[in-house]
Write a protein that binds this DNA or RNA. Sequence first.
DNA 1: TTAAAAATGATAGTAATGCTTTCATGGTAA
DNA 2: TTACCATGAAAGCATTACTATCATTTTTAA
Lengths: 218, 218
Amino acid sequence: MNQTIRPTLNGHLYLRDPQGTELGHRILAESVRLIDEVGFEQFTFKKLAAVLASTEASIYRYFENKHRLLVYLVSWHWTWLRFQLRFHTHNVPDPIQRLRLALGVLCRAHLDDPATAGLDEAALYRIVMAEASKAFLTKEVDADNQAGLFQEYKLLAAELVALVLEINPHYPYPKALVSTLLESARKQLFFAQHLPSLSDGSGNVAAFLEHLALAALA
Amino acid sequence: MNQTIRPTLNGHLYLRDPQGTELGHRILAESVRLIDEVGFEQFTFKKLAAVLASTEASIYRYFENKHRLLVYLVSWHWTWLRFQLRFHTHNVPDPIQRLRLALGVLCRAHLDDPATAGLDEAALYRIVMAEASKAFLTKEVDADNQAGLFQEYKLLAAELVALVLEINPHYPYPKALVSTLLESARKQLFFAQHLPSLSDGSGNVAAFLEHLALAALA
DNA sequence: TTAAAAATGATAGTAATGCTTTCATGGTAA
DNA sequence: TTACCATGAAAGCATTACTATCATTTTTAA
């Protein structure tokens, strides 16, 4: 489980595969650190080049722009999450129990192995919490979607939809429920941290989602 | 109901009150149109000045930067929504029925009176759908929250929390439920339009939320 | 082992962005 | 009528988001 996972991601996400080179790996690792530190808006390739002791031009050879890099990192996280879910629900026969475990992983993903594949997964989770929505909240959503940039998220959602339908094959809104659970997990953790009057505490997010999902599927 | 509502918003949202002057009103109306057209990232005060036949400097006298303007517009929408909810649930005694109506308004707000107070409310709703999260997904959330920039959203949430507790006073996660419903309404409509594989159709969003909320509160 | 190919570095340049400053002007209110 | 607004006009400036060129190093394949 803890050996380095290096998921292969959609080729549209990058110009040159960052997993194929030394500099590529450093771009990934340091961009996670830097975005986590300064936020995505303040993050620039110039600053990244500085901490890498490299140049803007070199980074632009890997990623078209910083938005693509964000989508890459977020996709990486979704893939990683999908493996985590599989791992943690492996050999659990009861689908309700599997859903419980899955929601637990969703809400506690930031605590898991801190250094998979050289990426600081805890920092990446903070980025996902605060910036993942920006991956698709752009004027170019449709084109980006067409190019397959959101495949990893969809794969993750599809697995959860299957699980939901296993619990209740007649539930009429499985996709909406799953995307709501996925989005809500992140947002509730964000609210608990920054806008607490909109949440009921970060410790209760998993319990809330579990109650919500099981009530809906009952 | 249809006379122009001009809600008074938190003074931290602007430098000079745009509701107080002719240019101010034009800034609001045209920014809604322009952001809807080009998206928030591509939107600049320079472009806005051009369509207003005014200058960047003049706009900067009203809003510190485009982020504050976005927060202002979004806050305006939350206030407008709160009035809509009150209006539509007025004199309905059954809280369950009121919640149903509220969720209906949430999901159909983009169809309501197209020109309240000179703002294109349909365009504003599209902006809210696509850009509202960017109001708080920044490195400055905590400071912005401290300054009261998210008050309107909190007021709206608080009213819905009261309604939820009226239905079930023992429900343990009322704030999380309400913020999930509010966020989910927008995101599901966005998904239905742009990432349909994550939704079950834009026509079903209200039904989905209703089922979800009532199941949770049962 | 050497020659071609690929990856990186170094440097420069450019249009646009996100502001700030200053000064002129024209209308309004005391 | 004068003082004070709000707005306009114009300029300036550091940073951003790239692109382009050319030199060097490293890798690879013949």
